[in-house]
Design a protein around this nucleic acid. Structure first.
Length: 500
RNA sequence: GGUCCUGUGGCCGAGUGGCUAGGCUGAGCUCUGCAAAAGCUCCUACACCAGUUCGAAUCUGGUCGGGACCUCCA
């Protein structure tokens, strides 16, 4: 099997993935800011990196997956009103800041569960790591790369850039930054415009505030990730993930802070960035006022939505595109994903039954067929290893689906494909659909009573059909359909039930 | 303005220089009491203009369009 290659934003090329400690992987992903409800755009990194997490584990690694919760609240750029985002909203909603944070953290966790995302190994909060952040800032000052002004501390980017490649990750030149950074109104405490805050002095009205060697304040924009990643993954770890929009300034600043504290090296070896979800070609984001919240998506309650979309539909939709491409939202695209996922999943259900009833390791007699199936299965692995090309994996699976369905419908005989191939296919589909992609049946029906009633109805209908009493048989089928239960008559007389 | 990405059939989307990805939609056929599902077949695209090459959607240059970042942002 080929080796896993990933596109490393830091080197701008695909590289073979090798973890620092073989068999172990440390991965840090920038988590949500819990000052508001998550929207569709937020779903992408968490689904993308959930698949990375799952795949690394599938490959036999023990993975420590750290995803933070930003609950300390970033503040607006100085010059505008320097306000803690979270405390501002708390006033509006008349809630305690931590109450607000709790509410949106719970909602975020709920959404992650809907998407069938695995829980990270550690989910540290910014407010829980104020001490670590302060310690880190102290080190940066001691090393001479930060300075204090009026109770705030800033990172000295200009000095850092003299001996480190500041801007390498995001492809930026420090001199250019000086020219293109917007003019700041009012007083500027910073020595240079590129400098960023490590610690900000808190105005009296700030509710979220902590004591520090520089006075009462709150931590800067980027220091939490540096502090928490090094605490839980070490000063050099394998993967750092997040959305492309975080490359600058967030990740660039993270690299700068961490390098100063940890011997000059970049904290993570592989930097993975997912692209944005767009809507009508524009990035979905608060500033564009075009977000669709996850709760709206699941319920269909939004002017742009023609219907509700199930979490698994969205997951499938996201996986049908490569993670580094933009993904444009539209009802048409979501509906296509919904149908496609349904078809693939039903094929998988058939395959599971086939594998159960026809176990064995008998070689198939149709060599061309077996070769085709084998090739497609190999391509699935190749595609996944090629920078996690889930879109291509799914394409291969869609090519396998007709083969499976044909075996089910007896258009292809069991002996032609061979029980061995069926068994291999079955474990392959299970591995990808369930273990790696984290998909699951939209509506698992494991209600014994309901199943008993269904069985009864199916039997009555079968008897009616035998007597050519189609009025009765159609009545049962039609009325069940109105309830969202579909009965499909298979070739061999059995009935397949599916739920809408 | 700077840096970078991108432009694929009705829609969504993969794509390693030569081998019609795939999904959805639409049309036809087969199977079926009817239906649904499924299977088979068809709709053969790569913004534009030059260049490199035996050969380019894929490489190079240019033109035009779209987008991201440069500010909180997944």
């Amino acid at each position: 099997m080929s080796q896993l290659k990933v596109y490393n934003s830091y080197t701008r090329q695909k590289e073979v993935f090798n973890s620092i400690t073989p068999g172990h992987v440390g991965m840090y992903v920038c988590g949500p800011t819990v000052s508001g409800e998550s929207h569709l755009g937020h779903a992408r990194p968490f689904i993308t990196f959930d698949v990375v997490y799952r795949y690394l584990q599938f490959l036999g690694n023990k993975v420590r997956y750290v995803r933070n919760i930003t609950d300390a609240g970033h503040f607006e750029e100085e010059g505008r009103e320097a306000e803690d985002k979270i405390s501002k909203k708390a006033v509006l909603e008349k809630l305690e800041p931590m109450e607000l944070v709790q509410k949106y953290t719970n909602l975020f966790h709920w959404a992650m569960k809907q998407f069938n995302n695995l829980e990270p190994s550690i989910e540290p909060t910014a407010t829980g790591h104020i001490v670590e952040q302060i310690e880190m800032i102290k080190t940066i000052i001691k090393e001479g790369y930060a300075y204090e002004v009026n109770g705030s501390v800033y990172f000295d980017v200009k000095k850092y850039a003299e001996s480190y490649p500041y801007g390498k990750l995001s492809g930026r030149v420090v001199e250019d930054l000086l020219e293109t950074t917007r003019d700041l109104e009012g007083q500027d405490e910073k020595r240079n415009k590129q400098d960023f805050a490590l610690w900000k002095s808190a105005a009296p009205e700030h509710i979220m505030r902590w004591n520090s060697p520089w006075g009462v304040g709150f931590p800067g924009w980027h220091i939490e990730c540096s502090a928490m990643s090094s605490k839980y993954l070490g000063t050099e770890f394998d993967i750092h993930g997040g959305g492309m929009d975080l490359m600058f300034p967030h990740h660039e600043s993270e690299i700068a802070q961490s390098s100063i504290c940890h011997g000059g090296h970049v904290p993570a070896r592989y930097w993975l960035h997912n692209n944005m979800i767009t809507i009508n070609g524009k990035k979905m984001g608060k500033s564009y006022n075009n977000v669709i919240k996850l709760t709206e998506l699941f319920s269909g309650q939004h002017p742009l939505l023609e219907q509700a979309y199930a979490p698994m539909t969205i997951r499938f939709f996201i996986l049908q595109t490569h993670y580094r491409s933009t993904l444009d939202f539209s009802n048409e695209a979501l509906q296509a994903a919904e149908k496609g996922m349904k078809r693939l999943w039903e094929s998988y259900e058939s395959l599971k039954k086939l594998a159960q009833t026809h176990s064995g390791d008998q070689e198939g007699s149709d060599n061309a067929l077996v070769a085709k199936v084998t090739k497609l299965m190999e391509e699935m692995d190749e595609s996944m290893n090629d920078d996690l090309n889930t879109a291509k994996v799914l394409a291969s699976m869609f090519e396998l689906a007709p083969v499976i369905n044909s075996v089910k419908d007896n258009h292809i005989s069991i002996s032609a494909i061979g029980t061995k191939t069926i068994s291999l296919l079955s474990s392959k589909f299970k591995a990808y659909l369930e273990d790696i992609f984290g998909l699951k049946a939209e509506k698992a029906q494991d209600d014994n009573k309901l199943n008993g009633v269904l069985e009864l109805l199916i039997n009555i209908r079968k008897d009616a059909k035998a007597k050519k009493d189609y009025v009765t048989s159609d009545k049962i089928r039609n009325q069940l359909q109105q309830l969202g239960i579909l009965l499909k008559d298979d070739k061999d007389g059995t009935v397949t039930v599916s739920f809408e």
